[in-house]
Design a protein around this nucleic acid. Structure first.
Length: 474
RNA sequence: GUCCCUAUCGUCUAGAGGCCUAGGACAACACCCUUUCACGGUGUGAACCGGGGUUCGAAUCCCCGUGGGGACGCCA
């Protein structure tokens, strides 16, 4: 048995991102969302956000918010939803009722304890653990009498023969024998429906044509296809994305590497950089490495998704981030400087203009926090470390700085003029540029390294430069 | 244990039988630029998991190993 011809390809494209709100949006989920979003955009279709919150124990409103925040930060806007599965209970119950009536589902009274014992016995025999069908109705078969006081679960009457197959848009054709599957539970004893069932009803009701999701769902796909067929619903196309491994090649977990996308904001990454990085992680377009989301949407296809797992590489992300920071206009970077400095309690950023500082540093930093760190001494006069002073502020250097100070008093504070004055001091003292520039940097910024010192002085401004010079020479 | 997926430089990848002496990017290294450090520029080293087939020809197709991953829940 193969796919019943599904009209998926003739329906308007509709994809979905369906996270369960049991934690934040992590990098793997973000990539899945990005691909599903891009596919819908690429084909002029719709992108649905669906919150799979049927696990009442673990779902939290905070997690829902975290996912929404993450999507917003990335700029992945949905066209429909968010739908909440808990709000669709009436529909699930309706479909379960229909299936029970049609005989494609049945009540099972096996207790959890008996089920566990069954599984344990099967594992002891080195068999694949599965339900044994003891409550499955068959023609001519007499079922046991339901025990009193036991609330039954509802199981799907899975076909016992043949194979389920689909042409996975990433992995190619996948076939799984029905003999490998068992009659899985679609409604718990308390009546709440389970994952595989909700997904199927939702994908059907919402008209999902392309299911783009993580690799870990490959094993659910044959069950969902069987369910879809039992319901007479069209079977969507499936594309299973392989997982993203941590920087060290091991699986991402909450304890290890699977950080919230919002952590990237915290760490100074631009969403453009994260998006571009994610787009290239598991998908490619020839040799292209740097591209906008508009370009990505134009290029994105399922054919060029890699089928093997990819290892996350922070260094490449850093490179992209540095690139995007260079491209970003100074006004936006100034906002980022303000926001990040404020986190450290530096709120007075009136002067110098943070945009001027951004211009000075944007092509030498890898992330926004470095940019803010660079800006910090412009607002808070640094206390140069004693070692630096000892190393760089000898008598010769002090004399040179004193000479410079006297020339600076009446100078115009623009970099060209300042560069000229610096050269005058070199001529007067016979020193080389680094012999003056480095002590100057130490005194003015508390660091031995900075952009061209004339530009730094110009941005810092006369009053502040003279004040810092005087303090050091006192 | 059973089932499923997977395998090209350290990493992300190009590659759909001859265009491959395997290309690009990050990282590394070297040199250049330089007012320090970066940025930038140029260049170098670096890979088809192993074994069998198929074919005139295989990184590309098939099989078997091996490695890696996933699934086997009244979680999603």
């Amino acid at each position: 048995m193969t796919d019943s011809a599904s009209p998926a390809s003739t329906r308007p494209v509709k994809t979905r991102f369906a996270p369960s709100p049991t934690g934040y949006l992590h990098i793997g989920g973000a990539r899945t969302a990005l691909f599903a979003w891009a596919y819908a955009r690429r084909h002029g279709g719709k992108f649905v956000l669906r919150i799979e919150d049927t696990d009442v124990e673990r779902s939290t409103p905070e997690a829902v918010q975290a996912i929404l925040d993450g999507m917003q930060w990335l700029g992945l806007a949905h066209d429909e939803g968010p739908y909440y599965q808990m709000q669709r209970m009436y529909r699930y119950k309706e479909v379960i009722g229909q299936m029970l009536a049609a005989g494609s589902a049945y009540h099972c009274y096996m207790s959890k304890e008996d089920l566990d014992a069954l599984r344990a016995a099967q594992e002891a025999r080195k068999e694949k653990p599965r339900y044994d069908g003891s409550w499955r109705p068959e023609p001519g078969r007499i079922l046991p009498t339901p025990p009193s006081g036991v609330q039954p679960v509802v199981r799907f009457r899975n076909p016992t023969e043949g194979v389920v197959a689909w042409d996975d848009q990433v992995k190619g054709r996948v076939e799984i024998g029905n003999a490998e599957l068992d009659d899985f539970i679609i409604a718990r004893a308390d009546g709440t429906p389970t994952y595989n069932f909700c997904v199927v009803v939702d994908d059907w009701d919402m008209g999902i044509t392309h299911v783009i999701r993580g690799d870990d769902h490959v094993n659910n796909t044959p069950r969902q296809i069987n369910l879809l067929k039992a319901l007479g619903a069209p079977v969507p196309l499936y594309a299973h994305l392989s997982m993203i491994l941590g920087d060290d090649g091991t699986k991402l977990s909450k304890r290890h590497g699977a950080v919230s996308v919002m952590q990237y904001d915290e760490d100074g990454y631009l969403p453009e950089a994260v998006l571009n990085y994610l787009a290239r992680l598991g998908w490619s377009h020839g040799d292209d490495e740097i591209f906008s989301m508009a370009q990505f949407v134009e290029w994105f296809d399922l054919d060029h998704i890699t089928s093997s797992a990819a290892q996350f590489n922070t260094e490449k992300l850093n490179w992209l981030n540095a690139h995007y920071i260079k491209q970003t206009d100074d006004a936006r970077l100034a906002q980022e400087i303000r926001r990040r400095l404020a986190r450290e309690g530096v709120t007075d950023t009136a002067a110098p203009d943070p945009a001027a500082i951004a211009a000075l540093y944007k092509d030498r930093v890898q992330n926004l926090n470095e940019l803010a760190d660079a800006a910090h001494p412009f607002y808070v006069a640094p206390l140069p470390a004693p070692e630096l002073l000892a190393q760089h502020l000898g008598d010769g250097a002090k004399a040179a700085l004193a000479d410079l100070r006297s020339r600076l008093a009446g100078a115009e504070f623009v970099s060209d003029a300042l560069a000229k004055i610096l050269k005058e001091t070199l001529a007067a003292t016979g020193l080389k540029m680094p012999q003056v520039a480095i002590p100057l940097r130490v005194v003015v910024l508390g660091q031995t390294q900075s952009p061209a010192i004339d530009r730094v002085l110009a941005v810092l401004g006369r009053d502040e430069v003279l004040r810092r010079l005087d303090r050091a020479l006192a």
